[in-house]
Design a protein around this nucleic acid. Structure first.
Lengths: 213, 213
DNA sequence: AGCTAACATGACCACCTGGTCACCTTGCTG
DNA sequence: CAGCAAGGTGACCAGGTGGTCATGTTAGCT
């Protein structure tokens, strides 16, 4: 007699609150970074503090839920672009989407940039992203569109770096990151350049992209 | 009868403590970032908390004092390199020193990257740095060593971006930033590349580097 | 040596944070 | 419509922060 637990009774009230909560938290974290307090998020969502902790046992869990959604979006984009004909253009498009995502969300930058802030699930999803991007990069490499010594992890890391370059002037010029993205492209697509020094990073915390090449 | 206030009596004890404090704080902030507490700094310096606040009325003041020293060092480096013959090599050297400084100090990155954290004096010193680097860049430009559409502010901003690129793997590969610095060089020195999109940032918060070109 | 002003001290304060819990409210089912 | 469990609530807690201040100490002058 296996208990049929699943579709019992997801109270309407509850799913509404969960949605309200995720929306408010996403917005709040995007604007204010990870230091936004749980109290403020509850307020923004129009619920009590206790309700926040009922849905997400800790602040880290809430942050992870939101980060995972964003990471998932990027992985999706990368997978879709894997089917494009022009791998170089596909890589360009992916990087544009990636930096744009970072530029729009302060908390995302902070979580991605600091391994110490990351849930296990987030780390796994980052690894997935690295793998997918490695495939994307490998294709561009084979087509001769990118220099040979660039790995997928390089590309993922560059996303954060490009955004950070423009971050100090984000308020005054929200699109400045496009300038530095283009500059990075000029370095990235310089197929004639001499090899980069120092081995490429062996993956972001978990996997080695060179294995999946 | 003007009171001869100045060289009255800087108690030996006091200058010793101030030195201890600055040393401890520099180290602590470098390792732990701006979130290191004043209490821990006092402990590290071997003085009481009150003493910290006697020397530096607020945490911001302490942070500013340290940041100013680092910024001053970079300005000095830039000024020195202004006299070099090969302006392109000089620019390379400056950027290497700059990224190295950032990689060695977490708090410095955080203060420089977030205008909201900055004391007025820090902002002024950043402006000075931008001006000096603009001169350095202009020379490289004239010598045809750098592409024409790069400004001094671009270069200063890139410092943060290059460091950030490697930051997530800083623990595992402390020298990884050199890889991305080289990549940036390849973009920066691509004199044949088409013009970058979006006007260059109009200076870091205060001055417009295009005026001093 | 003795005096005093400058300095050091650490207990203390208000404030804010993530997180808990006993209690109340409410959507759902029978 | 009644009853109950799942869910919502907000007062509450412990811990940690920047910052203060009455008190004790001491360096340096006479």
């Amino acid at each position: 007699m296996i208990e049929r637990a699943p579709a019992q009774s997801p109270r309407a009230d509850m799913v509404r609150n969960r949605h309200l909560l995720l929306t408010a938290a996403t917005e709040a974290f995007a604007e204010g970074g990870v230091d936004v307090s749980m109290g403020e998020i509850a307020q923004r969502a129009g619920v009590a503090k206790g309700t926040v902790f009922r849905h997400f046992p800790s602040k880290d869990d809430l942050l992870a839920a939101i980060t995972l959604r964003l990471l998932g979006g990027l992985v999706g984009t990368a997978e879709r672009l894997l089917k494009a004909e022009d791998a170089g253009a596909a890589l360009r498009e992916f990087m544009t989407a990636g930096v744009e995502t970072l530029a729009a969300d302060r908390a995302f930058c902070e979580v991605i940039g600091r391994p110490s802030l990351q849930h296990a699930e987030v780390r796994d999803e980052i690894a997935r992203l690295c793998d997918t991007v490695e495939a994307l990069t490998a294709r561009a490499r084979e087509q001769g569109a990118v220099r040979g010594d660039i790995t997928g992890t390089d590309v993922v890391l560059l996303l954060g770096g490009i955004h950070q370059t423009a971050a100090p002037v984000l308020d005054q010029q929200p699109q400045a990151w496009r300038r530095y993205l283009e500059l990075a492209f000029d370095g990235l697509f310089a197929t004639g350049a001499r090899a980069l020094p120092h081995h490429p990073p062996a993956g972001l915390h978990l996997t080695d992209p060179r294995q999946s090449a």
